[in-house]
Write a protein that binds this DNA or RNA. Structure first.
Lengths: 329, 329
DNA sequence: TTCATTTGTGTAATCGTGTACACAATCATG
DNA sequence: CATGATTGTGTACACGATTACACAAATGAA
C-alpha cells in the first residue's frame, strides 16, 4: 500500500531486460520478440507497472490532454455538449481538463496555467473569453482551437451556427397567432453570440415590418429570466418574449404565470434557445430554437481528429438550427 | 505564429544566464538577485516564456492534477458540486481532469489511464465505481481519494452523509397529511448510496408502523422517473413516492399529473433528494431531502488541503441533510 | 586587515520515458 | 556457402524543468 510507483528501469531489472525493451513492450508497433513482450507484460501486471504518462508526454511532445474552456459545468445550456464531447474524447484516450471561467476572477491566468501543461487541443465553448486572447495564450503550444467565434487564423477552427431560418419559422408562427409586440431577453450584455442570435430574430421581425420593442439582459440563469421578465412585463405591453436560452425562458414563463397570471401561449408567447433536454419535459414543453448537439460535437471531434492526423482541410463548419415546437409559442 | 514554445535553456541564452537561474526566477523562494529576476521575467514576457508544467511535474513528482470521477457532467444531481469543486481547485492552481464513467464501457481502464498522469488527488463522486477498484488503481500514485463510500483504508478519506433525521421529518409531515401508502423509486439497482438513502426512509416509516409498499428502479433521469411512476401508479395504489433524486421526482410529478390526473400534494405526495437549484424553481417547488452543497465541497477541499500539506487528521467527515419544503409534499 | 557568513550564479545530475543508432543473431536467396 | 535483409536487444541521449553542490564575490564582524 502507498508504495511508490515502479519505474521502467526497475521493471527492466526484474524482467532481465533493458528499459528500452520495456518501452517497446508497451508500444504497439515496435520491433520486439513476442515472447519477450508477453513476459514483460506479465511481470508488469504483477507489479502494477504502467508507463508514466507525464514522462512520455515530455518525450513525445504530445500530452493527450485537451483543454475545455467552458462557462460553467452545471449550466444545462452547455452541459449536454460537454458530456458528449468528454465521452468522445475518452474513447480516443484523450483526457479533458476543464477550465471553468465564468466564476474565475482571472480567466486569462487560468488559461495560461492550462497552456503550461502543453495541451494538444483547446475547445472553447465559452463566449466569455475573447478568441484573440485564447490564440495569444495557446499559440505557443500549437494546439487547435475550436470555437464558436469566427476568427481568421491558421490555428483556429470555427464552428459557425446559423439559426436564421429556424428563427424565421418561429416568428412566422407567432405572428400568425396574432402576436405583435416582441421583447428580447439577452443572456449577456457583451457576448457576440448573443448578438448573433438576437439578429436572427430581429431580421425575421423586420421582414414582417416588426421590431424588438423591449429588451432586457440576464445572465443565462433561471433566476435572471424570472426577474427580468417581471420587470419587462411591468414596463411594457409585449405579448412575446424571445429568450437567450432555455433556462431563462423557463424562468420567464414562470414569472409571467405566477406574477402576472399570463399563460402561454394564449396570453404570451415564450421562446427559448439551445434545445436542452429539459425544455422537452412535460412541465416545460418549450418552443425553442434548437441545435443538434450530436451534430455539433461530431463537428468538433472531426476538427480535432483532422488536426491530430495533421490533415489539412476546411477549418470551418457551419451548422443550422431547427425549430423545436412546444406549447409555449 | 505557431512557433515552438521557447525553452528555459533558450531563454537562458537570451538573458545571458544559465537555465538554473531561469528556474530560480520563477520559484518564489529561491536565492536570486532581484535585478536578475526582474530582467529574466521581462525577457520571458517578451518571448512568451512559461515554465513547462509537464517537465516540472516529472521532476517534482507533483502534477497538480486532480482526477474527478463523476457519473456524468450534465446530470444536475452532481453538477452543482462539480462546479463548486472545480472553482475551488482552480483557485488553488490545481487542474481538474474529468473522468466521466457513466457512459464509458470500461470505467476501470479509464481510471487506469488517468492514473498514469500521476494525479495528486482523486475525488470520486460516482457511485458507479467500487471504492476498492479506485484504491487498487490509484494507490501506486499515492493520491488521496475522497469518496462517499465508506472504506477503511489509509489512502481513502470518506465523506459520510446522514439524512435519517431529515427523512424522519419529511415522513412525519406526509403521514400527518394523511398519506399511508409509500413507494420508493430508486435511481439504480446496485448503488450502495441508493440503498443507504432508501434505508433512511424505510426506518422512518417503520417507526410509524408503515412500510415501503411498492418499489421501482430508474436511472436518475427525468424520463425514467416519468416512466417508472406511470407503471408504479398503475399497478399499486400508493399515495406517496419517495424518489432517488430530484430530477426523477420532477418526472414522477409530471407523470402523475399528466397521465393520471393526480396533483401534488393533495392526491399524491412526491419527494426528491439532492436539493438541486432546479427543485426550488417556481414550476417545480419540490419537497426534497437536501444536502448543503457548499458544506459538502468545503469538506472535500479540507481533506485535499490536509493531504497536500501532509497533515494527519480525521479522514472522515459526516454531513447531515436537511428537509427543504416545497408544495409537492 | 582577516576570517566567517551570506548571496548569487553556474555545473551537473535527476525525474521516467521514447527512440536513433549500433550490433549480433537469424533468416532468406542465389 | 556467401551475402544481404530482417529481427531483437542494448547503449546513450533527448525531452525541459528543478535542485544539491561548488564556488566566487560581497558583506559583516572582530
Amino acid at each position: 500500500m502507498n508504495k511508490r510507483r515502479i519505474t521502467s528501469k526497475e521493471l527492466a531489472k526484474l524482467a532481465g531486460v533493458s528499459s528500452a525493451t520495456i518501452s517497446r513492450a508497451f508500444s504497439p508497433d515496435s520491433r520486439i520478440g513476442s515472447a519477450t513482450r508477453d513476459r514483460i507484460l506479465s511481470v508488469a501486471r504483477e507489479h502494477g507497472y504502467q508507463p508514466n504518462a507525464i514522462a512520455r508526454s515530455l518525450n513525445n511532445q504530445r500530452s493527450r490532454l485537451v483543454a475545455l474552456v467552458v462557462n460553467a459545468i452545471g449550466n444545462p445550456c452547455e452541459a449536454e455538449e460537454q458530456q458528449l464531447l468528454v465521452h468522445r474524447l475518452q474513447a480516443r484516450q484523450l483526457l479533458p481538463i476543464i477550465l471553468c471561467c465564468a466564476d474565475h476572477d482571472d480567466r486569462l491566468q487560468l488559461m495560461r496555467l492550462a497552456s503550461t501543461y502543453q495541451v494538444d487541443h483547446v475547445v472553447v465553448f465559452s463566449d466569455m473569453v475573447s478568441m484573440q486572447d485564447a490564440v495569444d495564450i495557446f499559440h505557443t503550444t500549437k494546439p487547435i482551437i475550436v470555437s464558436f467565434e469566427p476568427l481568421e487564423n491558421e490555428n483556429v477552427s470555427n464552428i459557425r451556427i446559423d439559426g436564421s431560418a429556424a428563427a424565421d419559422e418561429i416568428i412566422e408562427k407567432i405572428v400568425n397567432d396574432g402576436k405583435k409586440r416582441f421583447a428580447y431577453l439577452s443572456g449577456t450584455k457583451s457576448s457576440w453570440i448573443d448578438k448573433l442570435r438576437r439578429k436572427w430574430f430581429a431580421d425575421a421581425l423586420a421582414k414582417r415590418g416588426l421590431t424588438i420593442e423591449a429588451e432586457a439582459f440576464g445572465d443565462y440563469t433561471y433566476d435572471s429570466g424570472f426577474k427580468e421578465a417581471v420587470l419587462l412585463l411591468h414596463r411594457s405591453k409585449v405579448d412575446a418574449i424571445i429568450c437567450g436560452n432555455d433556462v431563462m425562458a423557463i424562468g420567464a414563463r414562470d414569472a409571467a404565470r405566477r406574477m402576472l397570471g399570463k399563460n402561454t401561449p394564449d396570453d404570451i408567447a415564450i421562446v427559448g434557445q439551445d434545445g436542452i433536454a429539459m425544455a422537452a419535459w412535460d412541465c416545460n414543453d418549450l418552443t425553442t430554437l434548437s441545435l443538434d448537439h450530436v451534430a455539433f460535437i461530431d463537428a468538433v471531434v472531426d476538427l480535432i481528429e483532422r488536426h491530430d492526423a495533421d490533415l489539412p482541410g476546411p477549418h470551418s463548419i457551419t451548422l443550422t438550427c431547427n425549430a423545436r415546437w412546444g406549447s409555449t409559442a
